[in-house]
Design a protein around this nucleic acid. Sequence first.
DNA 1: CCCATGTCAGTATCACTGAAATAA
DNA 2: CTTATTTCAGTGGTACTGACATGG
Lengths: 167, 167
Amino acid sequence: MLATAPAGKRRADKATRSGSAETLEFLGVLWALDQELRALSKRMQLRLGVTGPQRLALRIIGRSEPLRAGALASAMHLHPSTVTGVVMRLGRAGLVRRRRDPGDGRRVLLALTARGARIDRHHRGTVESAVSRMLHDLPPGQLAAAREVLERLRHSVARERASGASA
Amino acid sequence: MLATAPAGKRRADKATRSGSAETLEFLGVLWALDQELRALSKRMQLRLGVTGPQRLALRIIGRSEPLRAGALASAMHLHPSTVTGVVMRLGRAGLVRRRRDPGDGRRVLLALTARGARIDRHHRGTVESAVSRMLHDLPPGQLAAAREVLERLRHSVARERASGASA
DNA sequence: CCCATGTCAGTATCACTGAAATAA
DNA sequence: CTTATTTCAGTGGTACTGACATGG
């Protein structure tokens, strides 16, 4: 596009880089997705008793039980203190059991209770279910592309964040 | 799919529908993206004085000034009471001006102040900038596909939320 | 009186920073 | 004493529900 006269408008150069309508629309969709995720998360809390992040925590714990609190924080890309709160709520709900590591008293080991394991297996009405359905509705061969889009987006946002730190 | 021989495992049938490793990985990336968005939003607040949602509000208001509060809520897919809070913070920061609609006293019209307009134009270090960069780094022709992935995802999450309401 | 628009009060989760407790 | 791990206290933004005030 604009191959013949690429520099037709000087300001188009700048606009294309940061202010195009495409970008703005994409931005809108991105925040809308974010909003939908939160909304579904809230509904999950009403119907399942756990939010989206909470269920993700259950899922990760269930995968490699018992799991250290720090490992969970790292897997969820969260600050340890944030995980403390999430686990506290899950513990209060009787979904996660906490015990100190016998070998290293500083550490805390997390494991699912029976009820926690049940929710781990319960997919109806979850974000995971939505993702699963979306992946199945995707034209064949598009799965890798879909994932790459999300990864690129995440990487780009992460880069923007890091660049701000130094500059 | 899986017609020839890939269906080596029977349990793959159920797993594919709701518990496959692919889905779980995708879910992880999705929440990671969500987390990055929040993190960048927080950094924006430190460097620009506005969060991600707040800047999106500025952007939308700047697009069609003056804008009713309800229209902003609708454009951002938020509850009116949520917008009240966002606009209150923007107003307190001197970025948005509020006045009652002369023609209809129930309505509130929003407009940018000079400082608000400056932030509207300032893209460095924003989510928009990250999105813009990502779109530009995308292989040509992938833009539409990228957008469709996000739309599909949003639609699927929205559908899951709605289905929960009735069932 | 009824409906629309917006705000306010109350609630909850998420997520951070910084400080403290505990154990290696 | 130093380091690692986790928790606690405090802060702030997002976003809802439900109640309310105000205006058409």
